[in-house]
């Protein structure tokens, strides 16, 4: 029981970081119709900025601010220099150009920071464990990540449903020409949306970099999982991204924790471990396949 509730919390925490990644991707796709593979590079950039600034100043808060601003600035720059030329192109060209950006970002980071991983130390206020009701000890920082995820989800919802920028974003999704005709500067709106998505990716990188390590290539596995989240949730839907991210996070954590012991009931332990681990790592993709059979457009997608 204790194991189960701990794994549920791990799953929630994992799901929240996936949501931070998927929210930016799905926003950019919904508004601009762009598939951005380099989103994982912005995640990596946020992690490196946080590790470097926190290491130099000793302040984790400054590191977080650095990760947000570095990723947002890099996002805005990339949008103006490259991405802007891709909106009118087909998806194949978008994939290639952003794949090229990954190569540039990854090798650039390797050049500046080297191939060895960096480690972030937790601020003392957020380190250690807390006693949850029911007697479960759980790391405070992971709870903080869940909190950040919820706060970002609420913030995004407020931004999109209640603010002027949100109205423009929704209008831009619906009819780009009409919005431009009404006097909204579409180019600036797109740069702002892209930078917002980039900042969320950078934040996710900084948070995950704190519990794991910061290294070149850390972005792409998360990027692909964020794609799985988007496919399950429905492209362009932030609500879908939230629900699917939690679903994927929980499926992954519970599957990896429980499958080996479930298989151990019907076969010998070493074989059960092997099959359980292999199947556990495939479970979210099986979930995705299931959703595709049942609803190809995703849980909250409008239409495939």
């Amino acid at each position: 029981m204790m194991l189960l509730s701990e794994q549920v919390l791990n799953g929630l925490q994992y799901g929240m970081t996936l949501f931070l990644m998927a929210a930016g991707l799905t926003l950019v796709f919904g508004v601009m119709g762009l598939i951005n593979l380099a989103h994982g590079s912005l995640y990596m950039l946020g992690a490196f900025a946080c590790a470097w600034v926190a290491g130099a100043t000793g302040s984790f808060a400054l590191g977080l601010i650095a990760s947000l601003s570095a990723a947002a600035a890099a996002g805005a720059l990339v949008e103006v220099v490259v991405i802007r030329r891709l909106y009118a192109r087909d998806h194949l060209e978008q994939v290639l150009a952003t794949f090229a950006l990954i190569l540039v970002f990854s090798e650039g980071a390797r050049w500046v920071f080297g191939s060895f991983p960096l480690y972030l130390t937790l601020p003392s206020a957020l380190s250690g464990a807390v006693m949850l009701p029911g007697g479960l000890q759980y790391p405070l920082f992971r709870l903080a990540i869940i909190g950040v995820g919820v706060a970002v989800a609420v913030g995004l919802w407020l931004l999109i449903s209640r603010t002027r920028l949100g109205i423009r974003i929704r209008a831009g999704e619906a009819d780009r020409e009409m919005v431009a005709a009404l006097g909204v500067d579409i180019a600036r709106l797109y740069t702002a949306v892209f930078a917002l998505g980039a900042a969320l990716a950078g934040l996710a990188g900084a948070l995950v970099g704190t519990i794991q390590s910061v290294q070149v290539g850390m972005g792409e596995p998360v990027l692909i999982l964020a794609f799985v989240v988007i496919v399950i949730g429905g492209i362009g839907s932030i609500k879908g991204a939230f629900v699917a991210a939690l679903l994927v996070g929980l499926t992954d954590a519970l599957g990896k924790a429980l499958l080996p012991s479930l298989f151990a009931r019907v076969m010998e332990v070493s074989a059960a471990n092997g099959i359980g681990t292999a199947l556990g790592s495939m479970l979210i993709y099986i979930l995705m396949a299931g959703v595709l059979i049942w609803r190809p457009q995703g849980l909250y997608g409008a239409r495939a």
């Binding site: 598939i35 794609f227 993709y285 099986i286 995705m288 190809p296 495939a304």
Partner: peptide
């Protein structure tokens, strides 16, 4: 079952699934 950008992401995801399977196939 999907088209366009979904197709790109789904093919990528299935490849990743087999990749993880190969990694854990001792």
């Amino acid at each position: 079952r999907t088209t366009g950008v979904y197709f790109i992401m789904v093919t990528l995801a299935f490849a990743q699934m087999v990749y993880y399977f190969a990694i854990s196939w001792r």
